[in-house]
Structures are given as C-alpha cells and as structure tokens.
Amino acid sequence: MASLAWLLIPLFAAVGAGIWGSWAARDRTQGDISELAGYARFREAMAHADHTRTKTEAHSGSDAV
C-alpha cells in the first residue's frame, strides 16, 4: 500500500502540471485587443494635444516650450 502512495505523488504532479500548462497556454487575445485600442486612443489624444499646443504657441508668438 505504501508503494501505491508513492506512485500517486507523480500522478498528482503530472495532473497538476497538465492543468497549469493548459492555463498558461490559454488564449488571451481579448485583453490585447482592448489594450491596443486604448493605446490608439492615447496616441490620437496626444497628437491632438500637440497640434493644439503648436497652434496656441504660433498665435501667442512665444518661443518657449
């Protein structure tokens, strides 16, 4: 009976490794899509802010940044 217990340890380890492997290999593209969309909005906002700032500096005649 003790030898059976020692054989169950690697079996449980293999099952645990299989569960962990399937969890680690899961498809996580859903999060990437929303992150990329957020980054695109951020870039658009920064481009708009830079364009607005450049316009304001041109009208004020200031050379300071």
Rank of each mutant, 00 (worst) to 15 (best):
A45K: 07
S22K: 14
S60D: 09
W20N: 10
G38W: 01
E57H: 10
A37I: 09
R43V: 14
E44K: 05
P10R: 09
S3D: 15
A58E: 09
W6S: 15
A45E: 12
A13I: 14
A47K: 07
V65K: 08
W23C: 06
L4S: 13
A40C: 02
S22H: 13
A14C: 11
M1R: 04
I9S: 02
P10W: 04
R26E: 09
A40R: 08
E35Q: 10
P10N: 05
A2E: 13
D27S: 06
A40T: 07
W6G: 07
H59K: 14
T52M: 07
H51G: 02
T56M: 10
A17N: 10
A25K: 12
W20E: 09
R43Y: 03
I33F: 04
I19Y: 11
D32F: 02
G31D: 05
A13H: 00
K55S: 11
M46K: 13
H51S: 13
W20G: 01
W20A: 15
L7F: 11
E44A: 13
A14L: 15
E44R: 08
R41Q: 15
G16C: 06
W20Q: 09
G38S: 07
R41A: 15
E44H: 01
D63L: 15
H59P: 00
P10G: 03
A24G: 00
I33R: 06
Y39I: 11
G16I: 03
A2S: 13
G61F: 01
L36I: 09
L11Q: 05
A14R: 06
V65G: 08
H59N: 12
L8K: 09
L36Q: 13
A64C: 08
G38C: 02
L11H: 04
W6R: 15
S60F: 02
A5D: 14
L8N: 07
A25M: 12
A58W: 04
L11G: 01
L36P: 00
H51K: 11
G16W: 01
S60P: 00
S60C: 07
E57C: 08
A13E: 05
L4W: 07
G31M: 00
S34W: 06
E35Y: 05
A58N: 10
I9P: 00
T52F: 01
T52D: 10
A58M: 11
G31C: 02
D32L: 12
T56N: 08
F42I: 03
L11E: 02
T54P: 00
W20R: 15
G16L: 07
M1L: 14
V65T: 14
A14H: 02
A47I: 06
R41S: 12
G38E: 02
A2L: 14
L7H: 12
G38M: 04
A64G: 07
A45C: 03
G16E: 03
A25T: 11
R41L: 12
S60L: 13
D50P: 00
A2H: 10
